[in-house]
Amino acid sequence: MDRQQIDLGAGLLLLIAIVSLAFIALRAANFDALGGASTYSLAVSFENIGNLKAQSPVKSSGIIVGRIAALSLDQENFEAIAHVDIDQRYSFPDDSTFAIVSTNLLGEQYINIVAGGSETALADGDRALGNSALILEDLIGKFIFDKAAE
């Protein structure tokens, strides 16, 4: 067997294995590392984010317009902050409503944007106020409490 062919073949195996390992490692560790679309960031504050998670989609009228980059807690007023990356192609008025909704009763949660009527659009780094998530346990608790009161 030709020495050059063996070197090329064995090198190909190693190369594909290294690329595969990098693919698995990056996908298992950091989703954004393989992203690339240009976005602008917004910070949306919520009283309670429920089960909202990083990398969940941000939708408007059912269309995905961005993703949640990170979640944090504001130490001043103890509100949850969702840092969202919105695709540069989409702009929203600064009085738009951000609400946490679910795909179904037990499904994953995402942020839904209902566009407002203002002339001014939200820009990179702006802060918006969001409607908190619907917490199933709170609803059940409220229902039981109301029934008991009756």
Partner: peptide
């Protein structure tokens, strides 16, 4: 299916 849920949940539940 949504791409974000696919990769996001994979990363969340799978440990390297």
């Amino acid at each position: 299916m949504d791409e974000g849920f696919f990769w996001g949940n994979m990363q969340r539940f799978t440990k390297f």
